[in-house]
Computed example of a mutant assay.
Amino acid sequence: MITVRISFEKKNEASYISLLDLQRVMQRVLKRSGLPVWHTLGFNPHIYMTFACPLSLGQESECECVDVKTEAEAPDFAQWKTALNAIMPAGIVITRVAPVQMKADRIAWACYQITYPAEAAAVLDQYNALESAPVEKHGKKGNKIIELKQHIQQVAYTAEGDAVRIELCLPASQELNLNPSLLTGFLEEKFGLPAASAGILRTKFLTEDKQLFA
């Protein structure tokens, strides 16, 4: 049995599809496609699927993926990509279908592009001047205080017309997973920069040694 990784972009209106709804979307699309995808056994068989690092609602991504299994001996992955893209909802585009090379637990970093209106530059300079930036991180095991400056010492940004763009990589391992909304939320609470004015795009995953996750 081959484990297949379906990589896809999730942008525009699709960014407001929750993980639970995304699971339903993928179940329906894979069934409609007629592709030889393996189903679980038992009274309620369903397509076996695993998603890596679920994306927060409202954020966009160029590097999402879901793993499925197939009993096909020589699957035509180009045909899989074509078949899936033909019936995907708006905002979701399949970019690659291939056998799994790395397990999802190899992911250690997630890289993001954050876009703000140009006037955010002054606020980012204020953040860079701070010595400490504590934020509260909510989790299943309770809340804890995270020192942002340990992970984002300085926010490097570039001006692009009427916007500023931030590029950063944050921990995304099973031990520590930081969401860029911790930064945008802190900037709103501390300096009044609306978090809703930030566009967040996840661009890639990296392993511990900074290799591109595939």
Rank of each mutant, 00 (worst) to 15 (best):
E60A: 05
V66Q: 02
M49N: 08
P54G: 10
G34Y: 06
A52M: 04
W38N: 11
G42D: 14
P45W: 15
F51M: 06
M26R: 02
G42K: 10
V37E: 14
D67R: 04
L57Y: 09
K31T: 12
F51Q: 09
L35W: 07
V37T: 10
P45T: 15
E64C: 04
C65L: 01
R32F: 09
V66P: 00
P45Y: 15
S33I: 08
V29P: 00
Q27T: 07
C65Y: 01
A52L: 05
L57F: 08
T70G: 02
E62Y: 09
V68P: 01
M49S: 10
F43G: 10
R32L: 11
L57G: 06
F43M: 15
V66H: 03
D67L: 00
H46L: 10
N44G: 09
R32M: 10
P36W: 05
E62N: 11
Q27P: 02
G42P: 08
W38P: 00
Y48K: 13
F51D: 09
C53I: 13
H39T: 13
G58I: 06
G58K: 09
G34M: 08
C65G: 04
G42C: 11
L35G: 08
A72M: 09
V25Y: 00
P45I: 14
H46P: 08
S56K: 11
R32V: 11
A72L: 06
T40W: 07
R24W: 00
V66G: 01
M26I: 03
K31D: 06
P54D: 11
S56I: 03
P36C: 12
K69T: 04
T70Q: 05
S56N: 14
C53R: 15
L41K: 15
G42F: 10
M49K: 07
R24T: 01
P45N: 15
Q59R: 10
L41S: 15
V29C: 03
V25R: 00
R24I: 03
A72D: 14
E62R: 09
L55N: 07
N44K: 13
